[in-house]
Amino acid sequence: MADCVRLRYVIDGENFTSAGEASVKVKRSLRQMGFSPEVIRKVSVAMYEGEINMVIHARGGVATVDVYEDRIVIVLEDEGPGIPDIPLAMQAGYSTAPDNIRSLGFGAGMGLPNMKKYTDDMKIESVVGKGTTITMTVNV
């Protein structure tokens, strides 16, 4: 754990208005730490998608961002319903979001594909009825 800065946020699952705030904070911190705009964008978009997913699909959770010199690791943990079929959920366009979420601008089924696209490594662990942990790494 040498030279690691840890950022940690509790994501409120009850409040859609605040969804995305943690990602905004991470973006600001990474900018202060002097990372390149491209690295910052990758991290913040991937985390933002994951943060929104935790709010709309999993009643919130906890986000941890470990910043190393050569990589940034984002861990998103929730105790939501879990993802029964991960390969299906990863497909572009697949979404279980209800109409009220769609009317807020989410539910295109592009979040998980975006998270994969913007990160160098992504791992999903999920147990139905227990929750989901997503670990993403962006190399600097």
Partner: peptide
Amino acid sequence: MMSDVLAFVKEQAVLITGLCNPQ
């Protein structure tokens, strides 16, 4: 659809939308 926007990488872009929420 915000995730469609997030799939799109371009410098100095403008977003045209009919949605009005903080997201």
